[in-house]
């Protein structure tokens, strides 16, 4: 029987607990994690890049005090990289070392049939759990204390890989043909993230809870800034949040994410800036914006963007 950690008693407590771990969550995010944990369902998190989808998994692991196991998806990721692999080298080495033993064992037996029988018996030794190299998915199932399994950027993987995930996500088990089915010792908390570069299949969506994290509101961004950069002055945090908020209204090639705002804050702190003025912003814009065209656009509109500051 599983004992719920106190943080997971209800959604509000969880949200607060996440905050203590340095992740400022909206109520919705806390609720989603709470439901995912209680219902033992994977949580699919979508949203623009840099809103803290991956951070959520890290904070969840910290709150639960469980290890975080991460599988980074990419094009061509397959069973051998995600699930398990046979330790081929070890198998080879063992057969070489044990060659003499094998000779002895086989030497005494008479006839082809008897040797075959003995070989069959040995076959199972070499395809046992000792020779399985667990990859993230299998590793997450094997944790006796449970784990937080993060399957990052699932949209980067191929469609076939999604199908492979279905067994794990719905039943928390893996079938290895030579060994059998490995069931989870403790159901892990599974968090999948996606940047929506391609549509995920309905089968996958159906098995998950779905959470969409948008860019944060201004107040929330200020809170995040102050929690991540404790030395920042409240005036600067406020100005920065307002400025970034206005930037996100513009049509940019890439919108500034929270992580970039935080980087920008750190950069400003290094430059000993107490408030935003035209020159500081101009010289640090490249921290916030990652396209040449965007920087030029914003630089041209800078007076308007800064002008209406309170």
């Amino acid at each position: 029987m599983r004992v719920d950690p106190p943080a997971f008693a209800d959604a509000q407590t969880l949200t607060r607990q996440l905050g203590d771990c340095g992740y400022i969550a909206s109520d919705e995010v806390g609720l989603a994690l709470f439901l995912a944990y209680q219902l033992q369902k994977p949580l699919l998190v979508e949203g623009p890049p840099g809103v803290g989808k991956t951070e959520l998994a890290k904070a969840a692991a910290a709150t639960l005090e469980q290890p975080l196991i991460r599988l980074q998806c990419y094009e061509g990721v397959d069973e051998a990289k995600a699930l398990y692999e046979w330790k081929y080298g070890k198998q080879l080495l063992y057969t070489q070392i044990l060659k003499q033993q094998i000779d002895q064992v086989l030497g005494k037996s008479e006839g082809l049939g008897a040797s075959m029988e003995k070989l069959h018996a040995m076959d199972d030794i070499f395809f046992s759990e000792r020779f399985v190299e667990p990859r993230p998915l299998l590793k997450a199932l094997q944790q006796p204390e449970g784990a937080v399994l993060l399957i990052d950027e699932i949209d980067k993987s191929d469609e076939e890989f999604e199908a492979l995930l279905l067994e794990i996500l719905s039943d928390y088990q893996v079938s290895i043909p030579e060994i059998g089915t490995v069931a989870a010792q403790q159901v892990p908390v599974v968090i999948l993230t996606s940047n929506q570069t391609r549509e995920l299949s309905d089968a996958l969506r159906r098995r998950c809870l779905h959470l969409y994290i948008p860019f944060p509101g201004m107040q929330q961004e200020i809170t995040i800034l102050r929690s991540r950069i404790p030395d920042i002055s409240s005036l600067l945090a406020q100005q920065m949040a307002a400025f970034v908020e206005r930037l996100r209204q513009l049509e940019l090639g890439k919108q500034p994410a929270i992580s970039e705002t935080i980087d920008w804050g750190r950069a400003l702190l290094l430059l000993h800036a107490d408030s935003l003025d035209r020159d500081t912003v101009l010289s640090t814009l490249n921290v916030l914006l990652k396209h040449r065209a965007d920087v030029d656009d914003v630089a041209a509109q800078l007076p308007q963007l800064l002008g209406s500051e309170p």
């Binding site: 959604a11 109520d27 919705e28 609720l31 989603a32 709470f34 439901l35 209680q38 219902l39 699919l44 979508e46 309905d202 969506r205 159906r206 998950c208 809870l209 779905h210 959470l211 969409y212």
Partner: peptide, 26 residues
């Protein structure tokens, strides 16, 4: 199940929970 967990008291929370379970795209 999620209604059982969340309860009917908080309308916003109920809506958010149901939305996570039932609606899977934007």
């Amino acid at each position: 199940q999620s209604i059982n967990l969340v309860g009917y008291d908080n309308r916003g929370q109920l809506k958010a929970a149901l939305s996570m379970v039932l609606a899977k795209t934007e």
